[in-house]
């Protein structure tokens, strides 16, 4: 009787957490900054709710396996998003297309080549020196 009561309490807690995470997933606005990472965080709550449900259903080994596997999934998804789609945070994805009509829009890689220490352009510029002229007012 006591075991059944504990099991049912665990299942009800899990159900409550699942509903809360479902509402959070749907209502989190896409306009927010880093909304994808927020959703991955909410799915973490759902994962823990599933683990509690598995314990409540008596599947302790399955709960243990999923407890170990769930963070790997979340990290893999976040890593894939950062490397391929996160334009907000990953500077490597912010590639500007060069526009010939606008001299102020230049590709980042070209600037890096120009600023490189071994750059031929920079060596050519070393031939010139800057002199300070003193202008005296009469």
């Amino acid at each position: 009787m006591v075991v059944e009561l504990i099991q049912s309490i665990l299942l009800l807690i899990a159900a409550f957490m699942v509903i809360v995470s479902a509402v959070g997933l749907v209502t989190l606005s896409s306009d927010r900054k880093n909304a994808v990472y927020g959703r991955i965080h909410i799915v973490g709550i759902f994962d823990i709710a599933c683990i509690i449900a598995m314990i409540g259903l008596g599947q302790y080994l399955l709960a243990g396996i999923y407890f170990i596997l769930a963070p790997f999934t979340a990290h893999a998804i976040a890593n894939a998003f950062y490397k391929s789609e996160d334009v907000e945070n990953n500077a490597e994805l912010n590639v500007v297309e060069e526009d010939d009509s606008n001299p102020f829009i230049v590709n980042k890689s070209k600037i890096q080549v120009l600023e490189d220490k071994d750059s031929e352009k920079l060596k050519a510029d070393d031939r010139f020196t800057i002199s300070m002229l003193d202008i005296e007012e009469e």
């Binding site: 059944e4 009561l5 099991q7 299942l11 899990a14 409550f16 479902a22």
Partner: peptide, 19 residues
């Protein structure tokens, strides 16, 4: 109560699947 809580869990999981 255990039966009811199992049904509630299944309903919550179906809601989560739609979300």
């Amino acid at each position: 109560i255990l039966l009811i809580s199992k049904y509630i869990l299944i309903i919550a999981l179906v809601i989560m699947m739609f979300a």
